[in-house]
């Protein structure tokens, strides 16, 4: 099992490196491998430097961060809700964050064709975290009746998700053209406009939250055995479930702040990882992170290049893979 885990992690890491290079190379302005290496060694042209360090690298790092946080959040949610289909997009955490951002955009602009102001961009991550926590509070409050029943949490989450999306649509109808485009990338999930500012802000938070989850991974393992056994092993279920839900909310919100509402990514990584290395979280989480990073990076590279110069939101590209997988899982579920 140990060897298999290392092998799987190694292969996933190699894949990620390969796609990382592919993503650096490809785009409207195509680079060669030599040009990339030269630029990394400081011998590239100013143009190459801008393309790599100004545009593509922050975008790639954002993609990896988003993949990592959504898959970790998915691992957490699948365990604490005991539902194979749980992930932050489905239960409305991402939508809550997206709604908060849409409200922010809507409240801060007066003219129809205005672009977004700088302070709006800086407020976005904070606002999206507040939005995700708001959604989580709503789901928790509505599904709490002397403790949380995992199934109720999921069903309430799906309802909340639908409700929030309806509100988002309502706001979209009243938006100016410029705002609408900006809002759309948040709602369908896009890495367009990634910048180092966002990366610097999100990377420490995401690393900390993933670190905390990994530190508590044994508790997640035991929670998988069910409330009764976990209690017998000395886990205070209600308290731990709340803590893990907070971690998942923080992760989902950070991801949404970076790239908007990306559904299914939090489902794909954890599932494929579980199939390969089994349900023990200290093996599942790292592999899930790598797999999700590979998927989102591949999807984003495709989004940028398939219909260039048009760009498809990466969330839509992921849904193209995610929806069939989701249906396949539903069909398999007993």
């Amino acid at each position: 099992m140990k060897n298999k885990t290392f092998l799987a992690l190694g292969i996933a890491l190699l894949l990620l490196l390969g796609i990382f290079l592919l993503s650096l190379l490809s785009g409207t302005y195509t680079l060669t491998l030599k040009e990339i290496f030269d630029t990394f060694l400081g011998k590239g042209t100013k143009m190459h430097h801008t393309v790599i360090f100004g545009l593509r690298l922050p975008r790639i790092i954002s993609a990896v961060l988003v993949g990592a946080s959504l898959s970790t959040a998915g691992c957490i949610l699948q365990s604490i809700t005991k539902n194979q289909l749980a992930e932050p997009g489905i239960i409305g955490l991402n939508a809550g964050a997206a709604l908060a951002v849409v409200l922010l955009i809507a409240s801060n602009s007066q003219n129809y064709y205005d672009a977004l102001g700088t302070h709006t961009i800086l407020l976005m991550p904070i606002v999206s975290i507040l939005g995700a926590f708001g959604a989580a509070l709503l789901i928790y409050g509505l599904s709490c009746r002397k403790g949380i029943a995992p199934n109720r949490l999921i069903l309430v989450g799906i309802g909340v998700n639908a409700g929030i999306n309806a509100v988002i649509t309502l706001y979209q109808l009243n938006m100016s053209k410029g705002d609408y485009n900006q809002a759309l990338t948040w709602i369908s999930g896009s890495l367009w406009g990634s910048s180092w500012q966002f990366v610097y802000m999100a990377a420490p938070i995401i690393s900390l939250l993933i670190g905390m989850t990994f530190y508590k991974s044994k508790v997640l393992d035991v929670i998988d055995l069910g409330d009764e056994l976990a209690t017998g092993l000395g886990v205070l279920m209600e308290k731990e479930r709340r803590k893990f839900l907070m971690l998942a909310v923080g992760l989902a919100a950070s991801a949404t702040a970076l790239a908007g509402n990306i559904a299914f990514l939090g489902l794909l990584g954890p599932h494929i990882a579980k199939r390969i290395v089994g349900p023990v979280h200290r093996r599942q989480i790292p592999l899930a992170i790598l797999i999700s990073a590979v998927i989102i990076l591949l999807a984003d590279t495709a989004s940028r290049n398939l219909f260039a110069p048009l760009e498809i939101p990466v969330g839509i590209t992921i849904s193209v893979i995610g929806v069939p997988y989701f249906i396949y899982l539903m069909a398999r579920e007993k």
Binding site: D224, G226, G232
Partner: peptide, 20 residues
Amino acid sequence: EVAKIMAVLPQSPAVPSGLL
């Protein structure tokens, strides 16, 4: 500490799939 004194086995517990 209680878990070191008393072990509990519920009726038909769930098995995480793939767990060895």
